[in-house]
C-alpha cells in the first residue's frame, strides 16, 4: 500500500483510489502504415519492466479521473513524484529516457 499524489486534485490519497495504466511515454510509431511488424509489435507489447525506477501512468479513478505520470521504484515502491503527463515527459526526456 502506498500513497499517491494527484497533481490535478493537489492531494495525496491511498493507492486504492488510483488505477495503474502501465509504462509511460511509449512513443507511438509516427507513421503507423510505414511501421514494420517488428516496430508495431514492439510498440504494442514489449515493455521495459525494470527492477528499479519506473515512469508509469496512473489514473485517479475514484477521484478526478485524470491520468498523470508517476516515477516509482519497483522494488522499494518509493515514489519520486507525480507530474502531469507533459511535465513528466519533459523530465523523463531530460533524464535521457527513451
Amino acid at each position: 500500500m502506498f500513497l499517491i499524489y494527484c497533481p490535478y486534485c493537489k492531494a495525496t490519497r491511498e493507492e486504492e483510489e488510483f488505477h495503474n495504466a502501465g509504462e509511460a511515454f511509449i512513443a507511438r510509431p509516427a507513421d503507423p502504415e510505414a511501421a514494420s511488424d517488428e516496430e508495431w509489435g514492439d510498440y504494442l507489447f514489449m515493455r521495459k519492466n525494470p527492477k528499479g525506477w519506473h515512469w508509469e501512468q496512473w489514473q485517479h479513478a475514484a477521484g478526478c479521473g485524470r491520468v498523470f505520470a508517476v516515477k516509482r521504484h519497483t522494488l522499494s515502491y518509493r515514489i519520486a513524484g507525480s507530474w502531469t503527463l507533459a511535465a513528466g515527459k519533459a523530465l523523463f526526456l531530460q533524464e535521457g529516457g527513451v
Binding site: E15, E16, N20, E23, E56, R72, T74, S76
Partner: peptide
Amino acid sequence: GYVGYGQRGS
C-alpha cells in the same frame, strides 16, 4: 495492478 518486484502485495 502495477509492476512490482517487492515480494509482498497490497
